[in-house]
Design a protein around this nucleic acid. Sequence first.
DNA 1: GCCCGTAATACATAATGCAAAATTAAATAT
DNA 2: ATATTTAATTTTGCATTATGTATTACGGGC
Lengths: 226, 226
Amino acid sequence: MNAFDAQTRPLKRMSLHEELAQKVAELIVGGELEPGSKVPEKELCEAFGVSRTPLREALKVLANDRLISLEPNRGAWVTPITPADVEDIYPVMGVLEGLAGELACARLSDAGIAQIRALHTEMEGQYAARDRAGFIKTNQKIHEAILVGARNETLSAQFQSLAIRVRQARYAAPVSDERWALAFAEHEQMIMCLEARDGAGLARVLRTHLDHKAETVLDWLDQKSS
Amino acid sequence: MNAFDAQTRPLKRMSLHEELAQKVAELIVGGELEPGSKVPEKELCEAFGVSRTPLREALKVLANDRLISLEPNRGAWVTPITPADVEDIYPVMGVLEGLAGELACARLSDAGIAQIRALHTEMEGQYAARDRAGFIKTNQKIHEAILVGARNETLSAQFQSLAIRVRQARYAAPVSDERWALAFAEHEQMIMCLEARDGAGLARVLRTHLDHKAETVLDWLDQKSS
DNA sequence: GCCCGTAATACATAATGCAAAATTAAATAT
DNA sequence: ATATTTAATTTTGCATTATGTATTACGGGC
């Protein structure tokens, strides 16, 4: 308890293995480490300038999150995402984000909702301008805002840990014009529910929104394998 | 793909750190390691007859699951469960088990549902006989059966990782007669929904069921702290 | 000539060692 | 007597080293 308490955060510098876990996760979702490929322990050690111990600790937690799989005495491999995984993961993300929507409807301030509306308006423009990259980015921000608005750390953590697993696929999957239109229409509904503070409605929309996203990703996985 | 595929599983023996993580988790949920207390690295190494490296790897994954928290240069501590945690966790478990209910309704065979009905009947007897311990055990089996019936590994994993965090509190919290009666009534509804294959209804019941459980745990935490 | 068994190599895993940080205990000053 | 500083001990975190396991290459038997 000192005079700087207000300014100073507990300053939780990340421990080495946490930092490494994050970095390696970035490599995986970023595509630098391809699904199904081996995680080059030695190279990574050299690249990050650390010894094997902290890196291996990081790999253990990544394995726990199913981002990589550790085959005993064979090393670590980037777990490829299968259609079965997508079919399992998206419904779970659906109910989680549904809950987030419910909570956000109840807990978000009017100003908070207005902010999301602003993001939606921005996205509207990007849709009209056919700015796919911008659209995706703003889209992401809206979902993020809802998750934060739910004010539930456990919920956020669980959702993120699933989101990261499908992230590469999520972004890689091409979105057809029809699907894009559908996604936008669903976002319209989301905003309406949010402004009406209709939690149940928002939850419903978010679930189907994710169901549709799952379909997109599944289509892509199917055609990629064939 | 060989002739023994039906009998042979990939034979995934656990690596040392996995086994240790499980053992330490058991110590925590079993109450041998009290919430808020320090995780005695050295003692555990000696107790399990392993060196520090694999144990510390295990601690990293337990920390990732929020079962313990690693304070840099201060060691590992069993994270105590707070009312805020319960308020965060139970709603999430609620939607997860709700989804499990929906999926189970759709995917469970008639025989599977009959099995759960049998468990319910068994529990009915235990309720009438005021066999609290037996009731809890059968109760657990029913919820487990629903989760398995959902046939969604991701869902199961996510649910279990949350359940383990509240497990000590869950079992320690005393259940009043009224709450017990309520829980039983809710189970009656669950069975009815399940046999009618009313997924949405089952989901609803399961969510409120967990909401009530959360209240029980919260009451206990509140009175314990005072 | 092909398949199986054995040796060699490479690699993952676990144990130990060491330096740095924190906790404690003690001693001095207020 | 209490508070603060300093010294000693313990503990932590990372690197190094050693051990065990799996894969590959090679030679002998069928």
